[in-house]
Design a protein around this nucleic acid. Sequence first.
DNA 1: CTCGGAGCCTGTCTGC
DNA 2: TGCAGACAGGCTCCGA
Length: 267
Amino acid sequence: MPELPEVQTVVSQLKKRLWGAQIVKFTIYDKQKINLPRQIKHRTIADIVRCAKYVVIVLSAPNKKDVYLAIHLRMTGQLLISRDHKAACLNKSRVDFYTERGILQFCDVRRFGTISYAKINSFARSELEPLEKGFTVERLHALLIASRCNLKSFLLNQNKLVGVGNIYAAEILHRAQLSPKKLCLTLSKKQIIVLQQSIQRVLKEAIKNRGTTISDYRDTDKSRGKFQNRLRVYGREGKACARCSSIIKRIKQGGRSTYYCPDCQYK
DNA sequence: CTCGGAGCCTGTCTGC
DNA sequence: TGCAGACAGGCTCCGA
């Protein structure tokens, strides 16, 4: 599920609802895969930020250094805020964090998601954030010429540019009219400019629409995103391209589905 | 360095 | 209706 726009939506909501709240207690249900230290109890949520696709919760305590909880939602992870114990019982949760403002629940059917504890914010890695100032045409150009892979693999590689996943990679390339099979090395300066703009525009538009709900993604209120209504290629195999009316194709790249229009993404 | 495949998990959908 | 197999938004590890 969640790529940058979904994680950003969740982070914004969490910040609005839980900023300054104290963790009164927490209960781990999935003890097989999740382990958290007792020290996080009685700490205050001093901040909630997004680092790549991680939700990072900053926990403070008087006269102590901050500690960090980093949550990665992977495929089916959800962070829900429930008003009380009764409401929380309706959700199958892996961890519940009780605060005076509600219960933060980490739900995750496939259990691929992770939640980890650290004394430093090691999750704010140095890779390029597509919506920050540092994401310039020049930086993107430098990364592209150093890559021997195709554009789809490049966009999915979180060691280069963070936040883009399978859905948005497809949408970004369609918007930029670039083939997912095209080698990064072969982009012209003009195409790099278009790609850089497409990445930012698609991600910003998706954030405005509160993300994409295909099946599992929900925000903290269990509401669905809206960007699925604006998808131009993802999940639209066999349908007409909105730009040129050709039939949208699906191929496999690195074991994952890639949707694209063979006519207007030929370059 | 890059690629493809397997693995981590469970639920849902498809076709026989 | 039942069942096997394919597939799903992410990421990491392995061998090639």
